[in-house]
Structure formats: structure tokens, C-alpha cells
Nucleic acid binder design. Sequence first.
DNA 1: CCGCAAACGCAACTCAAAGTTGCATCAGGT
DNA 2: ACCTGATGCAACTTTGAGTTGCGTTTGCGG
Lengths: 211, 211
Amino acid sequence: MNQAGEIRPGGRTARTRAAVLAAVIEELTDHGWDQLSVESVALRAGVHKTTVYRRWRDKNTLVAEALKAAAESRIQMPDTGDIAQDLRELARIVRVLLTSREGAATTRALAGHSHDTAGVGQVLPVLWAARLAQVEPVVARAVARGQLPVGTSPDDLMKHLTAPLFHRLLVTAEPLTEASADQAAAAALVAARAGVFVPPGDGRAAAGMDL
Amino acid sequence: MNQAGEIRPGGRTARTRAAVLAAVIEELTDHGWDQLSVESVALRAGVHKTTVYRRWRDKNTLVAEALKAAAESRIQMPDTGDIAQDLRELARIVRVLLTSREGAATTRALAGHSHDTAGVGQVLPVLWAARLAQVEPVVARAVARGQLPVGTSPDDLMKHLTAPLFHRLLVTAEPLTEASADQAAAAALVAARAGVFVPPGDGRAAAGMDL
DNA sequence: CCGCAAACGCAACTCAAAGTTGCATCAGGT
DNA sequence: ACCTGATGCAACTTTGAGTTGCGTTTGCGG
């Protein structure tokens, strides 16, 4: 949670930092990026506006750092012994995250600013690399059990699993039902079994691909 | 292109309207939503600021309307006689759209504001309903040919086909390669064949689903 | 082709929020 | 207990959203 290289890691500094970052997420949840003002954040954090500006160059870097900190939570990875169930549970977990007010707001904020190379743009790759790394063992176990083709890319599988959920939240703005999560899991599973997520030339050839 | 109910549909009004909406898209492409100012838009459109405010209540509704107008372009639907090729071509078309500067910028703008019930939020459902309706015949032909299960939902198929592409643009901010488009098409095809996109209780039961 | 009203240009505002500066004060580590 | 970094505070500049009043242009109907 604490950034390396802090000059004074003691109580007050860390406390202020945490309070401000938390306040950013709350303001983001309540009013969205556009309506978020640094003054409101400072007020909510019980801190003066100049204090915020002394530590963060501008609004964008502030929000970017808050989003990064907020995304550092770990997900409890399922391990049921059956990849089909694992994937379904994973999809349901992601669905719950994305349907929470905070999760939806932060996700929209990230998506809407995935391009600004200075702020969120910097954070995105790091953030997702960490998340995807968590899935690796789940896929590895499934491959070991013979439930998935050798060489299946955990990254590709995870992305295709969650993509329809993000799509509903960000693109079509439809409600994220549990049925839609299950459908996403089923689609990803079938594709994975068919070897769609085995990079070409990796391990043995993809099976069942009569494309 | 022309909105119904215009009091004075004649030359100047329509010309101004088109110029402003086009200027919004250009500014959005060049500087993003946050940096977009009504004054810049007016300047670019060769129109005075007050003129803009007389026709559009505020910045959000202005941008929302511009996005809606920009999204009204039709896509050339493929019809190769083979659903696998149709889907791959569709994915590639979407990829090209999303990798264009304008397409990326407008998509991010939409995604980042999918919640504001007054502006973009109003537009999204209409917009996507129109797009998805275009795909219906492609799927219908494939079903008629026996290449896809009876009852396959064109909406679900199209969403799962494009979701990984949007995911790359909005969530992970990875480059949108043609290979990723082909992978998305392959995944969607396999899932569709397995009956993942056949609503429960619709037509005959899903085939090949040993979930 | 002429007049009327809608649409536009223009300037001058208000207001809110981004970001800055100088100085006084407080609190944490040695 | 001291010294320095961190904070509070007030006063500023600047930018952009959104508004208002008035004069001018332009399109459409007669």
C-alpha cells in the first residue's frame, strides 16, 4: 500500500496519503471523473487543498494514483478441481466487482482515460499484468488435469472470459446479470478447449479447430 | 443526418449544425473529452460560442449528440457463404474502426460516460440496437446453411465477437493487432457452434455443451 | 423581391474550479 | 527539546462553463 521512496514514512504523511486516495475513490464513485474537484477531495479527506497539490502534480496524476492503489486488491482464486466451475466462479466474482458502485465507477474512469500517456495510461499495463498473473495457476492446474490443451495462454483466456462483462458495463450499458457471467464463462471455456488460446507453434497443435 | 422537428430546416441552420458536430468529433479526437472546450469547438466550426449554447443545453448533451451522429454510419456486412469467414471479416472491420484515431477517441468517450443518464447514457442503447440489427441477417443465413445452431442469438454472438477488441482498447490498452481480431472471431465461432448463444428453452437444446 | 422572424455575431458579464505563492504553524524523528 | 519536513491558510491568476442583452444577418413565405 505504501509507495517506496517516501521521505518520511511516519504516521502523518502516510495517513494523509491514504485519506486523500480514499477520498478520490469516493468522489469518483459519487460524482464521476468530470464532476470530481480537488477541493471536494481535500475536504472529504479532512485536508487542505494545497496539501494535495504539493504531493500530486495535478488532478489527472492524483486520480491515476488513486485508481492504481484501489486496484491493488487481490481476488480469491477459485480451485474446485474442475476448470468449468473455476471459470464460472471467476466470471461471477468479476461480475460482482463490476456491478458494485465503486467498481463500476473506477472501471469507467480507467476506460475513459486509457490513452492519456501521463496518468492512467501509465498505470494500466502494470495493473492488469498483476491481475492476470493471479490466474496463471488456475489455468496451469487445468492443463495438468488434462482439462485444457497444453500451451493455453492464461492471459488470453482470462481476457476473453472477462471481456463480455466489461463490454456490458462500458459499451452497451446493459445490466450485468449472473446469467451473462455464466454465458461468458461458457464461451471462454469452449474456446479454450478448442485451442483458440494456444499461441501458434506452441506445444502441440490446436485441437478441434476446423476453421 | 437531419434531425426531425427543425423549425427552420434551410441551409444555414443545417450547415451550422453539421459543422459544430463535426468539430466536436475532431476536437475529441485531438484532445479528448476532458480537454474539449466549447470555445474551441465553436472556433473550429467557424461559429460563435453563444450559437452553440443556444442549440445545445450544455457540453455533455452537445458531445452526446455528436457521438450519436458520428455512430450512424453503416458497416458493409460480409456475406461469403461461410460463417467462419464472415465472422473473421467482421472482426477485422471492427478492429480497423477501433484503431482509427477517431474511432478510438469516440469509443473511449462513450465508455467513460456510459453512466450519465442525461447525455451519452441516453444514446448508447439506441446506438447499439441499430448496429446489432445489421448483423441479424448474417447470422440468419448461417443458421439456414446449418453452420450455426438454430436459435443462435445474433446479439450475443456479435457482442462476444467484438468484446475482446473493445477490451483491448479500453481496459488493457494493448495494441489491436489483426491476429487478436482473428482470435476473437475464432473464439466467438467455436462458442456459437457449441450453442452458447442459444437462449435456454429456445428451439432445440444446445449441442455439444458438456459443461 | 420584400418584409418578418429565426438564427447568428458580439461583447460583457458571473461563477466554479484548476493551479500557484508566501507565510505561519504543527508534528515526527533524532 | 530541537530541527526539518509536512500541513494549514489566505490570497491570488487563469481558464472554461454557461448567461444576457443587443444589434445584424439570413432564410422563407407571401
